[in-house]
Structures are given as C-alpha cells and as structure tokens.
Nucleic acid binder design. Sequence first.
DNA 1: TTGCGTGCAAAGGTTTTGCATGGCA
DNA 2: TGCCATGCAAAACCTTTGCACGCAA
Lengths: 131, 131
Amino acid sequence: MKYKTKQRAALLDYLETRRGEHITVADIRAHFEALGRPIGTTTLYRQTDELVREGLLRKYIVDENSAACFEFTGEQPTKETLVHCKCEGCGKLLHIRCGQFEEMRRHISADHDFAVDARRTVLYGLCSDCR
Amino acid sequence: MKYKTKQRAALLDYLETRRGEHITVADIRAHFEALGRPIGTTTLYRQTDELVREGLLRKYIVDENSAACFEFTGEQPTKETLVHCKCEGCGKLLHIRCGQFEEMRRHISADHDFAVDARRTVLYGLCSDCR
DNA sequence: TTGCGTGCAAAGGTTTTGCATGGCA
DNA sequence: TGCCATGCAAAACCTTTGCACGCAA
C-alpha cells in the first residue's frame, strides 16, 4: 500500500483506540457500519494483511472455524511477549506474561533448531473456571 | 457411534497404516476415492469427530485457512508429548520431543492457572532451513 | 423392526479473486 | 495522468446441517 487513503486512516484511528485488544475483521466492519461510514470487507482484509506485513498488527489463529483474531500493537510493539492462551471450554482468550515460555523458546531454538514465534502461537487448554 | 459400520472399519484400517502421520479429511477422502470405494465427506467428518472424542485420534489447528490436521494414535496414545511445530516459511510440520515444554506446562498450570493441552497446541515459527 | 449411520445436496462462515470504478499523488 | 486502492459480486474452501435412504443389531 503506497497511498494514504481515507479507509486506511480511519482503520488506523480505530485500531489505535483498541490497542492491545483482540478484534476480528467482522468487528471492524461492524464498527464502521454502525458509524454510517462502512468500509468494504475486501479492503479490510487487504489492509489488515498489509498492516501485519508492516508489523503494526498481529494476527492469531485462535479457532479453526472462526474468524482470524487481530491485535494492534502500533509502531513500537512491546518487546515483552504475551503468551496467548485459548480456553477450549468457554472460548475465552487470555494473555499471560510468562518467563518460562521465553526459556522454552530459547531452548527450542538452541536444541531443536526451531525459532518459535510467540506472537503467532496460541496455547490451547482449559482456564481456571473450566478445568 | 454405536454401530460398527463398514465405513468406520475401513477408516480405522487406513488410519492404522498412517499412525503418527499427519493427514486431513481430504487425504482420507482421496485415498478411498482412489480405491474405488469412496466414503462420503460428511461421514468422514462425523467419524473423525467421534474418534477424537474417543481419544484415538488427535486434531490440530495448523493453519487458519487450510483443513484440520489429524494424527492417529490408537488405543494407547503415547504418554509422551510430541510438541508440534509449524514452519511459516515452508509449511513443514515438525514433531519434537521436548521436556522444557512439559516444564512450561506445569508452570503455567501451577502459576497461571491454565491447563495447556499439548495435543491441541501448535508452535509457529521457522525451521532450520528457513530461519 | 428400531434407530443409528450414510451421503447427497445445500447451507454456513471466512477469506480471496475478478473487474470496473474512483481516489491519491 | 498514471497507478493504486476500493468494493461489489462471485468464487473458493473447509465444514456443518437437513433429510431420505439403507444398514447394523
């Protein structure tokens, strides 16, 4: 994307207000729909793709049969890795701060020669309420 | 499923020959198609669902826009957890044996109150060839 | 015979693509 | 002006559902 279009600007403004939260393309679409200034679904998919490529937005695979989940981080994404945990009981998505995960990443990188991308990874399991 | 149908028997026979491998419903469908004894897609989805519930089959969410991935383990699934790593570069899916992952699971369970299900979880990143 | 399993056809939901239009520089 | 972005409509994909038929017990 080389041009600064109204749609892109509006999208970025909205994402800014939801920094750190989890939203889907459908959420974004609904927001602008409600505002009376809808943005085409196609455009939203293309813009979110681009923002992911630019590193301003993160994309998570949270559930095979639901929409992709995005998190806006902005220009300076926190270095700190928030591990994503998806509860298979209630569907809740949790963020946890976990040094042990970092340690495991280093180990897998060093000993198994695989570079885990914590920003794309989701741990599945059961939350405290559901276990 | 309470009945032992021909389809279920054929499916189990086939899965046995591919124990420990990763296959999709489309793969299974193609196999029986090629044999000239096709099994309906609907049936395959229902039987795989059932087998997952019975614990003979594991299901992984490997990529948001591709088919679900199954692994047949049979009656006695190994206690040992094989961690799944999906390479975002070449698409390869690796199994690794990793005690550190187990340790992290215990830690997250104890300190973050979340029970990670290693059999459903996939770590995303880059393999040795792609990093 | 009873009721579960099967499989076709069709729907469901998310994401992608073709193409004409409209906007940015 | 020249090229890119937009967005509608339609397709692509995987998966699920409705329903009539057929097979297991």
